[in-house]
Design a protein around this nucleic acid. Structure first.
Lengths: 214, 214
DNA sequence: ACACTCCCTAAGCGCCCGCTCAGCTTCGGC
DNA sequence: GCCGAAGCTGAGCGGGCGCTTAGGGAGTGT
């Protein structure tokens, strides 16, 4: 599973799959601009400028500004799904896998906040077809988390009256990290991940919590 | 519980404090448009059109498009703060007050989703001065919730290793409801409020939870 | 040497934006 | 009956938007 070639922590600067080089630079510039100011407030001139190119250069590599957002959104969602899938298929009981899923998912939203922000909050700027494709990816993310929680309920590890609602809340909690996380703040992405993993285990009534935290 | 003068469901259509009538109609139209498409993607012609007026009419009542957002944001935040304050100063133990705060806060975010969406997600579209004012209101919301949690820890009702982080997570969880809540979905605002109140009591390790939920 | 392809730029098209302004109506006070 | 203020509109301004087009320079195969 997973995209190989990344070990952990470093994650080998993403967007490696985007070629040629100029197209990648434009895409990275677009991620930064969209995250800072929002899709609609970002101009194609701004994106091209950040990438050190003229406005026209953008249209050699992308048909429209929306295609840029679409590409960013698809790659980002695939990465998010990978993270959840890896955790869900890992070893250990439901509690371990849920903590792992939440910890790494939150770590990604905090550590790669600019990407996550675009991916999670600019969905509505996509046209109907592109949005439908992305929404499908989102539902698969939801299914991964729900699967772990259902496992835990089945084995008696968790005590959850409303599995669908709780799944929604867990994902919502993780996603919103991209909104408030501050790079200059006092917490590292890993610390937030650990805090959230503990909070989520409490939410599902897990008895096997890691003894508070240090 | 909750704020007098509204019986339930209706909430006495808000924005009553905005006068004259035309100014209120414009403001309500702006809330809808901003919530649907975002501040930057909304045109002044769209706002005026929804209110049944010509584009120029907007500028009789508001100096700029940004002033509209500022007004919406201030009134909305004040309403949110009122809800939290009422719950925090209520009777009962910390668990009851926290459940009340989360339940009504979430109920507002779900029931008045269009307003909440603008209030919570368009903050960055404001200029520096307006944003600073709103951020101050937000910090007071944070302080209300943290106060309840601190109370619960002090009395031994809660068991929370990281009060600041948990407060942040609780508020984040509630706020994100405005992003995903669907009016056509299967849950009412009150149901989501009840679910979230239970989840939050679990997060703070409250022993006095309401026996699952109905 | 030549043609061909790939990237890229300068210039600019057509459109729609936020916002303004002169002038029209409506209405209360006298 | 007349006046001034208040509320609103039609027309339109300066400007910036997304995107297009014509053409240039660098690299490659022959």
């Amino acid at each position: 599973m997973s995209t190989a070639e990344e070990t952990r922590g470093g994650e080998t600067e993403p967007w490696g799959e985007v070629t040629p080089d100029a197209a990648r630079r434009l895409l990275v510039a677009a991620v930064e601009a969209f995250a800072e100011r929002g899709y609609h407030a970002t101009t194609t001139r701004d994106i091209a400028g950040r990438a050190g190119m003229s406005p026209a250069a953008l249209y050699i590599h992308y048909k429209t500004k929306e295609e840029l957002l679409h590409r960013i959104s698809r790659i980002g969602h695939q990465r998010a799904l990978d993270i959840l899938r890896t955790a869900a298929r890992g070893e250990g009981g439901a509690a371990e896998r849920l903590a792992d899923a939440v910890g790494s998912f939150v770590g990604w939203h905090a550590g790669r906040r600019t990407t996550a922000r675009v991916v999670q909050y600019e969905l509505d700027a996509l046209g109907p077809e592109a949005r439908a494709e992305i929404v499908a990816l989102r539902r698969r993310c939801d299914a991964e988390v729900r699967g772990i929680i259902e496992d835990g309920v089945a084995t008696g590890e968790f005590e959850v009256p409303d599995v669908k609602g709780t799944t929604l809340a867990v994902l919502s909690l993780c996603i919103d990290v991209a909104r408030w996380f501050n790079v200059n703040g006092s917490r590292t992405p890993d610390e937030v991940g650990a805090l959230y993993a503990d909070l989520v285990l409490r939410m599902v009534g897990s008895k096997a919590r890691g003894a508070g935290q240090r």
